[in-house]
């Protein structure tokens, strides 16, 4: 046995949701520290002392700081006893990693650019302008500084946003196609790739109208909707979403028992 990991996270979705769900699936108890991203808690000095990159999520375990949500998930599976969350077969493991990268570097950044432009930016924009400027200056990573500046001041260009929407449509179609032969993303076994994708895909059916992005729906992507249902039936989702402070505004019970005609 080792010490309990401490996980610094925001709402249990997107990148924060990945290690949370992996820990729950693995059956590992952890100390949860909620970092309010909309209050820029991740750039405050006390958090930067723990994670100088100022990113969330981050995990402290055995005296080590770990960041990069997908790599943390692999750490969780490798480090702790519990159900295997990665296939043993090398080719399937390659497939699992390929899909996680596709989500991390293509599907999720595109969806989140649209979401940041429509929700995250406006959610923080009404703060005091001087305070906002100071908060942006406190962001240690240049990439994150640019991203926050664009979101807060609504600086994503029409072209960038249109390209992101196009990419979400392409990625959701490819994801649907991949479920043609198997129940799970990397094959016949539930894996970290399902956890990774869930944290991005679950919101898309609910935002089809508000984001004007009809990517995931019963009509367009029926297999993805059934995969989402299989995910909602896992007890780990309920336990992970209990950490939400903003309210996830999704009825897990209804999603888990959705009837498909």
């Amino acid at each position: 046995m080792s010490e309990k990991p401490v996980l610094y996270h925001w709402e249990p979705n997107a990148n924060s949701g990945k290690p949370m769900l992996a820990l729950e699936e693995k059956g590992v108890a952890y100390d949860s520290v909620y970092i309010d991203m909309l209050e820029f808690d991740q750039h405050r000095p006390d958090y930067l002392e723990i994670n100088p990159m100022g990113t969330i999520p981050a995990m402290v375990h055995d005296g080590h700081l770990l960041n990069e949500s997908t790599a943390i998930m692999e750490y969780v599976d490798a480090r702790f006893d519990g159900p295997k969350l990665r296939p043993d077969d090398a080719a399937k493991r390659w497939k699992m990693r390929w899909w996680m990268k596709y989500c991390d570097q293509y599907y999720a950044p595109s969806a989140s650019m649209v979401a940041w432009d429509m929700f995250t930016g406006p959610a923080v924009r009404n703060k005091d302008p001087d305070e906002l400027r100071a908060r942006i200056e406190a962001i240690p990573l240049r990439e994150r500084r640019i991203a926050w500046t664009k979101a807060i001041y609504g600086q994503f260009s029409e072209e960038e946003l249109a390209e992101s929407r196009r990419r979400v449509m392409i990625a959701s179609a490819l994801f649907e196609d991949n479920l043609r032969e198997n129940d799970w993303v990397a094959g016949d076994q539930f894996s970290l790739a399902d956890i990774n994708a869930f944290n991005l895909v679950y919101i898309l059916p609910h935002m089809a109208d508000t984001m004007r992005l009809p990517s995931v729906s019963v009509e367009r992507t029926p297999r993805t909707m059934k995969w989402l249902q299989r995910m909602y039936q896992r007890p780990s989702i309920r336990r992970t979403w209990a950490h939400s402070r903003g309210g996830m505004h999704i009825d897990i019970e209804a999603e888990a028992n959705r009837e498909f005609v």
Binding site: H64, L66, E68, A71
Partner: peptide, 17 residues
């Protein structure tokens, strides 16, 4: 060890991206 494997993957993300 898992931590060493994490180091590899975190670094690989930086290399690739």
């Amino acid at each position: 060890d898992a931590y060493g494997q994490w180091q590899l993957q975190a670094l690989a993300r930086f290399f690739g991206e």
